[in-house]
Amino acid sequence: MIKFVGVSKKYKNDIIAVSNINFTIDSGEFVFLVGPSGAGKSTILKLLLREEIPTTGSIFVDKKDITKLKRKEVPYLRRNIGVVFQDFKLLPNKTVYENIAFALQIVEAEPKYIRRRVPMVLSLVGLSDRANSYPQQLSGGEQQRVSIARAIVNEPSILVADEPTGNLDPDTSWEIVKLLSEINKRGTTVIMSTHAKDIVDSMKKRVIALEKGNIVRDEMRGVYGYEA
């Protein structure tokens, strides 16, 4: 469960990124975060990952106020939140397999477990045959699948996707969203920020719409926007 309570973030240059944000996301939900560039979507995700600390307000992840975490507790929060980025952020000098295994090495998993777990996740994202390829040998959609596999290999309870389809063509975007939806059906909470109107509209999931740092709409089975 994720809960934002009166969260505001003002950056050093006095730009107010978000102001007085309140929402609750239950375990197992699938939520779209929509709004124009600069509306505060990325800031909310950064706050959730504790990349930023709010100026005021509290953020709860599983009943724990993450704004009060000590520096050395942050890695353990992040192990519970998988992240997928628009630019994939894969390591170019590691193979697909190694990129995913890396996420397990970091949490000091047993080599035996790593050898069993990585193929499982690869098959889940449909890339079993690309295990030994390097990222630059893959298409954008395949790279994003690898990054999703890396995000979920630790079995986090939350998956955050920051415009995961931003660099992909419409068909590939759909495959990625279906994959995220599949992961959501297995019980993982998914929060996805996006500009992809048609995807949001046809998925009929919860939509939190932001504008100028405020929540302007929060609907179950929502759409991207009325005016567009």
Binding site: L49, P75, L77, R78, G82, I106
Partner: peptide, 16 residues
């Protein structure tokens, strides 16, 4: 630095 950045995101400790 790119690698370190990714490591931080996937929950590596500072000492790691």
């Amino acid at each position: 630095r790119r690698e370190i950045n990714i490591m931080k995101y996937i929950g590596a400790t500072d000492w790691f």
